[in-house]
Structure formats: C-alpha cells, structure tokens
C-alpha cells in the first residue's frame, strides 16, 4: 500500500484527522509493504511522531514493512534527530540545538523509566528559557497523568511519546499516544449510553467523572491538567475513537472524524515562557486536610 503524506502535518484538527485516517486505512494490513510518500511534505510537527509511531509500531508487529520515501531533507533531519526514523531502519543524528524530545515507546509499567526520560529529555535542555521549579513540576505531573490514564483506562501494553520545542514561540508540544481501549468505548460501557466520540471525551474531561468502579477513586487527572493549562495559556487536544476535542483559553471545540482510531492521542501545548506564580486562593493546612 502507498500513502501520500500531507504537505503539512500539524497538531491541529486536520493533522489529527490525517493520522486517524492513516490508522483506518492500514489497520487490516499484515505481511505486506507500506510506503509513506513524503514528496509533498515540507512541514511536520515532530511531537506527532508519538501518534505515527503508535500506528507504525503496531503494523510492524503485523509484519508490515514500513518505508519512508521522498522525504524532504529538513523533515528527514528532524525525524532522525528525534530518533523516530531509527525505529524504522534509518540512522540517528545528534540534535545540536536540542529542540527535539525523543520519540520513545514505553511499556505501561515503566513509570520509572518514563520519569527518567522526562527528566533527561524534557526538563534539562540547556537551550530552553529558564522555567521555575513549579512550572517544571506542573509539566511533569500533567504528562504523567496522561501516561497513567493510558495504563488505567486504555488497558494497553505500550505508550508512545514524543515532543518538540518551538523556541521562537516559546512553546512545548508533547504528545502521548496509545492503541488501547478508546474513551468512547469506556464511557459508553460505563454509562450504558451511545455517546459520540467527542461527547464521550467531553464527559471524561469533567472533574469527578470517571469510568473507574473499584476501590480506588479517579476522575481528577484531566481536570488538573485543564486547570494548569488555563493558567499557563496552553492548550490540550484529545483524539479518541472518532472524536476530536480541544480546549484553548477555556474555549472548547469538539467534532467527529469520518474515521476511527482504536486508541487515544493526547497533545499538550505548553507555554514555557510562563512566569505565573500559581498563587493559591486559600492556604491549605496539612493538619486539617482530611
């Protein structure tokens, strides 16, 4: 099978729509060749490698040989620096400007390895503007909430992650993807309803809503991220099943794709030029917290 990659692959509705379509088009492949033609592609946001990698890694498990052809040198450079192409047979190049956060595949049980990866890749880049310890901690926590959601709700074996700094914009994009149970499937099973993909995501992101039923409560992780990103002036995008949901500056946009992804992609776009002190509205006393 031959698939033509788009001219620009960006973290926006159209970009995620293409990724979901790529999943749909290739999901039944096995013992075959897949050629991804980059002839028209001149811009690719490298954080999306998390989602592409999830799809292509699954295809490799199904004995599909993935080949990248006609890759523009600037696109090839970034995909080599972030170690994405090395997963598909190409060489690794050093990242002298350190704007990439490497593409990695983790088992869902590798929390400690994921923490080391974040420490090394995400928060120790010398070329970045200095970030307060609290901002770094907020970023780390937000990404971990996503990682843990993939484990708890996706019931999947692996999580894929990749990021990209945009030094001019002073922003960080970080994407986590899994091919586990979709939010739509979990929410509809729990509520015994037939919500659309985006309606299911809208339900799941509300504080207090969780599909957990055991002895451990849930329903907080995504709302903590939303609270942080509102103050940070960042944004979040979630793709799951055929649903697309995003929140920018408190404004929510949701829609349905024509195709369906069996899994979930979450992209966080974080303002790293953030000097908010995150002052608390009221002090919390550790002695009376319970």
């Amino acid at each position: 099978m031959k698939i033509r990659m788009p001219a620009k692959l960006m973290s926006e509705e159209a970009g995620f729509g293409f990724i979901v379509e790529l999943y749909e088009q290739t999901k039944n492949m096995g013992f075959d060749d897949l050629e991804l033609d980059f002839k028209s592609t001149y811009w690719l946001e490298a954080n999306l490698c998390a989602a592409l990698g999830a799809i292509l890694s699954r295809l490799q498990e199904e004995f599909v040989s993935v080949n990248f052809v006609n890759v523009n040198p600037s696109v090839e450079l970034i995909l080599s620096k972030n170690h994405f192409l090395s997963n598909f047979g190409s060489v690794v190049l050093p990242d002298t400007h350190q704007t990439t956060i490497k593409f990695r595949k983790f088992k869902v049980t590798e929390e400690k390895a994921f923490k080391d990866y974040l420490d090394k890749e995400l928060l120790s880049q010398p070329d970045l503007p200095s970030m307060s310890p609290l901002l770094k901690s907020k970023i780390n926590k937000s990404i971990f909430e996503i990682f843990n959601n993939a484990n708890i709700h996706g019931h999947c074996s692996h999580v894929f992650s990749c990021g990209q700094y945009f030094p001019q914009k002073k922003r960080l994009a970080f994407t986590v993807a899994d091919l586990g149970k979709s939010i739509k499937s979990n929410v509809n099973h729990y509520l015994n309803k037939s919500l659309s993909g985006s309606e299911a995501i809208s339900w799941a992101v509300e504080e207090g809503n969780t599909t957990r039923t055991g002895t451990i409560p849930g329903g907080l992780g995504l709302s903590l991220i939303r609270d942080f990103l509102k103050l940070n002036k960042g944004y979040i995008q979630i793709v799951s099943s055929n649903g697309y949901w995003e929140e920018r500056k408190g404004v929510i946009f949701a829609t349905e794709f024509d195709n369906t992804l069996l899994g979930t992609i979450v992209n966080l776009d974080i303002n790293i030029n953030d000097h908010s002190s995150y002052v608390l509205s009221s002090e919390i006393n550790a002695d009376s917290i319970f």
Binding site: E145, T215, I216, P217, G221
Partner: peptide
C-alpha cells in the same frame, strides 16, 4: 514528583 494517580490509590482509597 507526586501525581493524583498515586494519591488516589494511597490516600483516596482509604475513604472506602
């Protein structure tokens, strides 16, 4: 680094 997933299991669960 402390995330809500850990706190839910460790402390939140006590309320059950």
């Amino acid at each position: 680094l402390i995330v809500s997933t850990f706190l839910n299991a460790c402390i939140g669960q006590l309320y059950g």
